[in-house]
Amino acid sequence: MSDILTILIASLIGISCSILGCFLVLRRMALLTDAISHAVLPGIVIAFLLSQSRDTFFMVLGAGTFGFFTSFLVEWLQQKGKIQADASIGIVFTFFFAVGIILVTQYTQEIDLDQECVLYGDLLHVTLDVWLLTDGTNLGPKTLWLLVPLLLIIITFVVIFYRTLQIITFDIVFAQSIGIPVALFHYALTALVSFTTVTSFESVGAILVVAFFIIPPATAQLLAKRLQHMIILSIIFSIVASLLGYYLSVIFNSSSSGMIVVVAGLLFLLVFLLAPRGGYFNKKKLSHAATLSS
């Protein structure tokens, strides 16, 4: 039972992350997730100080707000400040993280926050952390109640605005010229990314959530020719990684989220080396052919 639940949670996170991740990867915004996952620390601390509770809801709210704020600042520095993309991400997340540490240190008497629960996360804990009603009814893991609605929102968003998102992703200039509110869609996407990041990192940890966003979509991108296929493939890869990774982690008695990431990485490597179109070995042949034809 708990095995299935753990795999279910990992897969749900994987699905949410890889759907959004496809857009991030294609729009060259992949590292935004890394920035968000570090920058939420002050959000968590402030939420904790204000609410005086460790309740997941407040944490997600505080962290989500800061995550969104981060992506806003990164975008602003890039657009208005003309700062190189990589540098603007680096500046924002190190700053927020530093502020977070300063806050924790100042209020160290009032806060008993562990590095663990902020930065590492744990799939098994989350599985055990069930939502009990006062009469003792077991409603299953709390995270599930956050993850399922989130996934539904993401799917609805992507299905309804699929064409629009596609245009923005592949030809932003054209999108602007036909009057699509590009900025609005950008912030809607980053808001979804922020909330997915914070909902997931309690389960898989702040740093590993980056892998869930990036690795399956990147693997899919090596194989797919169309956006639709890329999304489906990345979902499949993330589910396979969750299943295999979880069982390997049981065999080696080690962190399940870490092992899922390792499996996802190995899948990427496999596809990278062997893919028929973009694969390493075939690419050599291809580029050889390309130089011949040119």
Binding site: S2, Y120, L124, H125, T127, L128, S249, N253, S255
Partner: peptide, 15 residues
């Protein structure tokens, strides 16, 4: 104890 992480074996034990 601050840095402990649960593994699946631990879950079995708890069960």
């Amino acid at each position: 104890p601050h840095l402990y992480k649960a593994t699946r074996k631990d879950l079995e034990l708890l069960n």
